[in-house]
Amino acid sequence: MEDIEGRAMMLKNIRILIVDDFSTMRRLIKKILTDLGAEDVIEAENGSNAWDILNREKVNLVICDWNMPNMSGMELLEKVRADETLGDIPFIMVTAEGKKDNVTAATKKGVTGYVTKPFNAESLRSKIKTMFANAGKEK
């Protein structure tokens, strides 16, 4: 019970941006986040749209696919990390690209977490929880 409340508290007051070219995946991730207590979840269907949103609105967490038209998740990650204002945003890659090279490349570019599709709610929750725990230690 305590853990469930903790999860809800963790996500309640933050804005989360889901970036995926498949509406199916955006819908599934949004449902998981909402079940975990998130109340402010916005969506983009590629990196380019996400970049526009990030430059327009305050976002606390990005959950992003890798392979997308217009701008890939890796390209978005690079732009975010290179940006003075946006550089510190937690960025979780949720992707079907699970090869070691992909994980290594994303890690080198500063990804905060990496979840391979297919995934269940618990694996995404665990990644977010770890991310917040690490952020707490850094403070």
């Binding site: 498949f22 992707t95 079907a96 699970g98 391979t116 599709k117």
Partner: peptide, 17 residues
Amino acid sequence: KDAVGEITNMISGQARQ
């Protein structure tokens, strides 16, 4: 149609891993 695309994408990703 969207879901079929994503399922295909995930099967490809898992298999390639």
